[in-house]
Design a protein around this nucleic acid. Sequence first.
DNA 1: GGCAAAATGTTGTAAAAACAACATACATCT
DNA 2: AGATGTATGTTGTTTTTACAACATTTTGCC
Lengths: 222, 222
Amino acid sequence: MDTLLLTVLQTPLFAGVTPQELPALLSCLRAEKKAYAKGEVILAEGAPAGHIGIVLNGSAQVGQDDFMGYHTIIANLAPGHLFAETFAAAHIKTMPVSVVATSNCHILLIDYTRVTAVCSIGCPFHTQLIENMLAVLADKNLTLNNKLNHLAKRTMREKLLSYLNEQARQAGSLTFTIPFNRQELADYLSVDRSALSSELGRMQREGLLQFSRSQFTLAAPV
Amino acid sequence: MDTLLLTVLQTPLFAGVTPQELPALLSCLRAEKKAYAKGEVILAEGAPAGHIGIVLNGSAQVGQDDFMGYHTIIANLAPGHLFAETFAAAHIKTMPVSVVATSNCHILLIDYTRVTAVCSIGCPFHTQLIENMLAVLADKNLTLNNKLNHLAKRTMREKLLSYLNEQARQAGSLTFTIPFNRQELADYLSVDRSALSSELGRMQREGLLQFSRSQFTLAAPV
DNA sequence: GGCAAAATGTTGTAAAAACAACATACATCT
DNA sequence: AGATGTATGTTGTTTTTACAACATTTTGCC
């Protein structure tokens, strides 16, 4: 068994699967390992959907061509990352995005119908896989919903407070470190970086919070 | 068989299930029909998650209490609507939102573990149910992602163009009718209604589009 | 330690949006 | 048709943000 394939055991989709079970599961799924050279198209926009992909090594990029003709990078994919699973599960006919290798890479491609199909040999880990697939989609859902709550706020200050309060809640403390630098936080909240910096400064002066780089301390709510 | 239960056949979760199969499926799922009086709490914020609900008749509301103590209405639920499925599938321990009856209603509650469990009698429609559940989550994903793309735009005009272009694409025509009135569109895009109206007027004057009420015609891109 | 590069902060100005208040158009009911 | 309520559009003012340009701080490297 190719040791490269063991990469997938680290992914949420294969959580709970043992290295011993993996070969049988992959064969049951008819998973195909493919090699791509840097720049090569893995899944083309407009091509039939229905496969899910996992990056084994190397890197790739999910992108889309805008109605204005602009190309937007939707996601950078690193080893262990899953892609196209939403389109497959939603029975989308053609890929609305493209996936392109950004370095030489190996990708595991799985026909989605094999994921949900009851396998003839009734492998128990297959049940686990479906359970995982549901969890992956649901988690993504929560993540998106979360971000939406922040972005739906009218002002930058509200967006920030919404985000920071959520981070505090997650950390279980009013002091916490966010996983972004200023530019990344600005991108995440869809605001201008320098405006974000100055708003943070203003909020600090007003006593709403304290911060240094990526570490924040919120003032206790009144 | 209670005819009220036939309501679920209209939902995406039960798509493909026949009325004949329904009783067996519901018993396999150990689905419970419960009656709630207006104002009664169906699922409380902080209570253990793990059940999914379907509104059979009447209405309910999903809401959340903000860190500031404000109550936010997240969704209005009508007959056939599904709720709490994301939390169940994501294995969230406690409900982060509450569901309250806004009129006398009947709700079908299903323990999520029964959805993914392989049933002892191996019912084929159970496989269909799981397939549907995946599709429901994936669809919601796409919807959220879509909205996120609009909200991530910096200016109101860009938000609008992003939304309207997507509507045009969906309609397959530069002329289309949106499912919102002005206030709803403003809420959806998280902008001020009157500002939205005036921006639309400005865009019309600039020849970017034409509209009357909810019907829009986009100018062909240069 | 000193240097260069990157990250963060600051400021002023122009642009955009929120907000408020009102005008007009449309729909519905009698 | 007239009246009433709702939806939409318009305008001016205030607030907020984007943007640009630059200052300061931090980081990594030699």
